[in-house]
Design a protein around this nucleic acid. Structure first.
Length: 342
DNA sequence: TCTTGGGCACGGTACTACGT
DNA sequence: ACGTAGTACCGTGCCCAAGA
């Protein structure tokens, strides 16, 4: 009720609106602290037994969030038209796929494997095509290849891998397969192989937890350094700097977004455009979600609630063990043949 | 109860690479 | 140069939560 009142006042009082924009910026930076008996245009009268400073500060933080925008403000996420969702940054970091694991299993892998016979190794591409409502799916075969279940044999033909055969005969369930594959999955880049999930765990061991915006500027933007390895040190320090400077970045008001973005872009070689950061309906947002959704298979060490990706407390040793146990299976041959997880 | 916004998922489209 | 195959991106539909 109090915040409804303040909102109504804000909508009619330019000075009050400006004041709220100001404290929103301070709150985003985690710098709200007051000892005054009046905050902005609001005079606070509370019983003596309450700690005044604590109360005033938390009230301001709350106003900074709840009343941050004029009534009727909407984000830009739902307004983006054609070509306006494209990301602005050329990345190395890519998840294994832009699918949740359930859909990967049920819509892509399993329909493909219904076409497979355990005794037959080679398949023409046409024989593996999956149709739904008269339309051919263009992702099912390539995703089986990415998962190490199929490999390209010749032009227009694919061959069952060792793991593909094992999966077909029911020797491994999908969940275990994913756990086995993510940590040895690599993509070829101009600078060599890139292991997105191994790297993510190494990154999280240092950073502990990360939300979308720091992720975009750090892990998502990681580059190879001169010695040919991904520059995880820079990623970690950028993440830590942003988290420290903007502990509550998610509550940034519409008026403050442009300015905060400019500051954030100082942490980045090219900078992001507005949409990449302030909506999650772009590739960048999708990648954060899919990374979190995928790492969730390691449910004893990883927690993800769409806002924050974090490693569970006391799981460091488990993570180190996983990385160590899988380290000899990171070549493509092993990726297609080897179960290391059990 | 009805409406609206936007979080999330995913498959079609647009692109690139390849082969002729 | 052109046609086709292969791949990744991202535009958009679904649906739920929050607001009216």
């Amino acid at each position: 009720a109090l915040f409804n009142l303040i909102q109504a006042l804000r909508d009619h009082d330019k000075e009050l609106a400006e004041w709220i924009d100001g404290i929103n910026q301070a709150a985003v930076r985690g710098k709200i602290k007051t000892t005054k008996t009046e905050i902005g245009k609001i005079k606070i009268i509370i019983p003596d037994e309450l700690d005044y400073e604590d109360f005033a500060s938390s009230l301001m933080i709350k106003i900074a969030e709840v009343n941050k925008n004029p009534t009727g403000t909407t984000g830009i996420g739902s307004k983006l038209g054609k070509t306006e969702r494209k990301g602005s940054f050329t990345r190395i970091f890519k998840t294994l796929c832009d699918y949740t694991l359930d859909v990967l299993e049920n819509n892509l892998v399993n329909p493909t494997f219904e076409k497979i016979h355990p005794a037959v190794k080679i398949y023409q591409k046409d024989a593996l095509e999956v149709e739904k409502d008269g339309k051919i799916n263009h992702n099912n075969i390539s995703h089986c290849v990415r998962l190490g279940l199929l490999r390209k044999a010749e032009k227009r033909s694919y061959e069952l891998t060792g793991l593909g055969h094992l999966y077909k005969v029911g020797g491994i369930d999908f969940g275990t397969l994913i756990k086995n594959q993510l940590l040895t999955y690599a993509q070829a880049t101009d600078n060599g192989l890139f292991y997105p999930y191994r790297l993510s765990l190494e990154f999280l061991l240092k950073v502990r937890e990360i939300s979308f915006i720091p992720f975009a500027y750090s892990l998502f933007s990681i580059q190879f350094n001169d010695n040919g390895t991904p520059d995880i040190e820079t990623a970690v320090s950028v993440a830590q700097a942003i988290i420290q400077e903007y502990p509550s970045i998610a509550i940034t008001s519409e008026t403050n977004k442009a300015e905060i973005l400019t500051e954030l872009n100082e942490h980045h070689p090219t900078g992001f455009n507005y949409n990449d950061i302030w909506t999650d309906r772009t590739t960048t947002g999708n990648q954060f979600r899919y990374l979190g959704r995928h790492l969730q298979v390691y449910d004893d060490i990883i927690e993800f609630d769409f806002k924050t990706l974090k490693i569970k407390s006391d799981s460091d040793q488990k993570i180190l063990d996983l990385l160590d146990k899988s380290k000899d299976a990171v070549d493509r041959k092993s990726y297609e043949e080897k179960i290391w997880i059990v």
